[in-house]
């Protein structure tokens, strides 16, 4: 009874969440995968089990290749762009400029806007009109004497342009992550390096950057999974046009226009799997990292692990 009193209240508290997540996340995921493995290609048929047939067939469709390519271009430009810009902003901020709080708030604000609102504004900014029809960025470029662009309507680089609003929106968040990372580097370490004759650049290269690796990895995962399932931004900017097609938009068209639930579920499954490829290793890694930081304390309680071993392990981690 005494024991139950220690764990039962906690269990009761989390039960509703466990049930809700079990039904609405994992239950629905399972249902989706089950649907993806049937031939329910219209609303009325029952759907026979066909195994992985849908997953193979979709690679015959030119549109699927296009949307996968688009996602790759979008992901590369968006993730790299947001990481670099976020890092740069954090780097400048970390140097202790005046009014840092204000700047931090300004750069973080875009995070508070939904992708839909961002998309609608950027659709106007990235209007492809040129010359006397130019508006938005093209008008600005025209005025500055810079070349004008087709932006997201460009057949080859449209998706790279599409990543610009996403970079604008997320780089402030990445900045906040990196800033916390920078602040987490003890001043003593930097001073020690300087005393050893390290240049300022060297301090960053050899001391600060290696210690930012976990932060970079977190940022990479967060940006990567946003990028792989991007939908609202694309729809807000260009609707369901092929020129900016991505798997999530393709999925929407498959379900609501083509009335093909099995195909929609197949695309949804691919999106889940691609995100899982990013997220699961990260989860494993972070669980392990947590164990490593927890274990030494319990270990020292049992007197099994000495301090030297702990140092060794920390070195390996960094």
């Amino acid at each position: 009874m005494r024991r139950a009193r220690t764990w039962l209240p906690g269990l009761l508290l989390v039960t509703p969440s466990i049930v809700a997540i079990g039904v609405f996340v994992y239950g629905m995921l399972g249902w989706n995968f089950q649907l993806a493995m049937t031939d329910k290609h219209d609303q009325v048929s029952e759907g026979q089990f066909v195994g992985l047939q849908n997953f193979i067939d979709i690679w015959d469709q030119p549109r699927w290749h296009l949307s996968v390519n688009h996602t790759i271009v979008f992901t590369v430009v968006f993730v790299l762009g947001a990481l670099l810009l976020g890092w740069l902003l954090a780097f400048l901020m970390e140097k202790g400029i005046k009014g840092e709080g204000t700047f931090r708030a300004i750069y973080l604000f875009p995070m508070a806007i939904s992708f839909v609102a961002t998309g609608i504004v950027w659709r106007w900014l990235m209007n492809s009109g040129t010359g006397e029809r130019a508006v938005g960025l093209n008008r600005l470029f025209d005025w500055l004497g810079l070349p004008q662009w087709q932006w997201f309507r460009d057949q080859d680089w449209g998706m790279a342009a599409m990543a610009l609003p996403a970079i604008w929106q997320m780089s402030g968040y990445v900045m906040a992550l990196f800033l916390a990372g920078f602040r987490g580097v003890p001043e003593e370490l930097r001073e020690a390096a300087r005393v050893d004759g390290c240049t300022e650049w060297g301090v960053y290269r050899h001391v600060v950057l290696p210690m930012l690796r976990p932060v970079t990895l977190s940022a990479l995962i967060i940006l990567g999974h946003i990028s792989l399932k991007v939908f609202d931004l694309i729809v807000a900017v260009s609707g369901k046009q092929i020129i900016t097609d991505v798997p999530a938009v393709f999925m929407w068209v498959a379900v609501f226009d083509s009335n093909d639930p099995a195909k929609g579920a197949t695309i949804a499954s691919y999106i889940v799997v691609s995100v899982a490829i990013f997220v699961i290793p990260y989860l494993i890694w972070s669980v392990r990292a947590e164990r490593r930081t927890v274990r030494p304390e319990s270990g020292s309680l049992r007197g099994q692990r000495g301090p030297s071993e702990r140092d060794h392990e920390q070195e390996r981690r960094s």
């Binding site: 219209d42 549109r63 296009l66 057949q155 092929i242 020129i243 097609d245 226009d257």
Partner: peptide
Amino acid sequence: NQPWLAAINEQVGLFIG
């Protein structure tokens, strides 16, 4: 019908490219 139209729109979109 709608699925047919979706398929035609897809082909036209691919053709533009």
